[in-house]
Design a protein around this nucleic acid. Structure first.
Lengths: 216, 216
DNA sequence: GTCAACATTCTTGCATACAAGATTTATCAT
DNA sequence: ATGATAAATCTTGTATGCAAGAATGTTGAC
């Protein structure tokens, strides 16, 4: 199944945080997690250390680990950086994409269209992720792709909230269309600009985010 | 002395990697490190887990930890991302800098000038770091600043190599001047462009890097 | 009834122990 | 002498144990 216990624990706990099973600010008790996953405290601690290094968990000396709660402002900052990285990925993709990349991007885009037309916003969420990953891959920068995936993952819960906003799926899909066009046309600067705008949460979208966060 | 043993170990080992005491590809033996630092294996393992999560160390199941060796191509990719993040920091700084930020930036720039005039490239290296950190701070994005500092740190050894190249210090300082001008003039786009160019290693600078790497 | 000081309990931090997989070494056959 | 196989050794992965600091509960004074 999995490589080893620690990696599995790391993923499980990380997923728990991402999916809000472990809410921001929640204490992560070592023995509790250990019994829950049927292991001893040692691998749990090692997993928590990793999450600490990534910035998902804070470890206060002698007082245990808690899930980090990035306030609205920090979430905004994270989207800001994400927008920049996606923009870079787009511009590189426009210059470097191969035939295989084009196929993958178009396939993901087509799936988005299907989910959008079906009004299935959960499916759209999944396809949207594939679409963006296709662009990371087309950038042909392994490091950039890793950074993007990691940040994308951390922002997942908030992105999900965003899609609930009325008409957001329609807008998102329309933006995807323009992005695909720019990339396949090889227009790096246009791809960069469009992706940056697509990802960043400016103006009222930020207000929406804050409002949705508050009402949890 | 320090908060706890694990954090101290993490820093010590990380410094060892950055400063090339632990060369890329080197095996990091747990008991060896434990005895060296006078602790047991447990905190050593926890520190290694953290470094693994950051991407400095690879842990192969049942076969121990080794220092990751990012080949020239990946180093280039890392500089590419760094350039983008610095560009963002510059553009934000141009829009958001306060009086205190201006003072800090100008002070760091002045120190760079002193070290450059004195022909002291080691001192310049240190002042250069302060200069860039001043810009991160002026961006007023905590998350961006953290990302920049982390990546800056990982690229430290290669940046150091770069400065050895003939005339690189002079060029660097001249670029700094233009960057300061753009930021203080509030010209976000100009600041972004200049910083991006300043950081990225295009063309012959990449060849220089590869050559220097090979001759280690 | 409330607050504070003290004792108890709980949790973390690190060390040690033990088992299982990997590596090295030694022996034997060809 | 070389290659393969097996034994011994070494290393990692996980569990457990113990001590010290934090959290909690209790008792007593006002």
């Amino acid at each position: 199944m999995s490589e080893n216990v620690v990696q599995r624990l790391r993923d499980e706990i990380e997923n728990g945080i991402i999916s809000n099973d472990f809410a921001p600010g929640a204490r992560l008790d070592e023995v509790q997690l250990a019994t829950r996953f049927g292991v001893s405290r040692t691998p749990v601690r090692e997993a928590l250390m990793q999450l600490n290094a990534i910035g998902l968990v804070e470890i206060r000396p002698r007082r245990g680990a808690v899930v980090i709660d990035p306030g609205p402002h920090r979430i905004f900052e994270m989207f800001e950086v994400m927008a920049e990285l996606e923009g870079l990925a787009g511009s590189l993709a426009a210059r470097r994409f191969t035939d295989a990349d084009r196929t993958t991007i178009l396939a993901a885009h087509a799936d988005c269209e299907r989910s959008f037309s079906a009004g299935n916003s959960d499916a759209y969420y999944y396809d949207n992720e594939r679409f963006h990953k296709a662009i990371y891959a087309a950038s042909h920068s392994g490091f950039l792709a890793e950074q993007c995936v990691a940040l994308h993952r951390r922002l997942q819960p908030y992105r999900r909230l965003q899609l609930r906003v009325r008409n957001r799926v329609a807008t998102s899909f329309a933006e995807h269309g323009a992005i695909v066009e720019a990339i396949l046309a090889g227009d790096a600067e246009q791809a960069r600009t469009l992706l940056r705008q697509h990802v960043s949460i400016q103006g009222e979208r930020f207000s929406d985010l804050v409002a949705t966060l508050a009402s949890r």
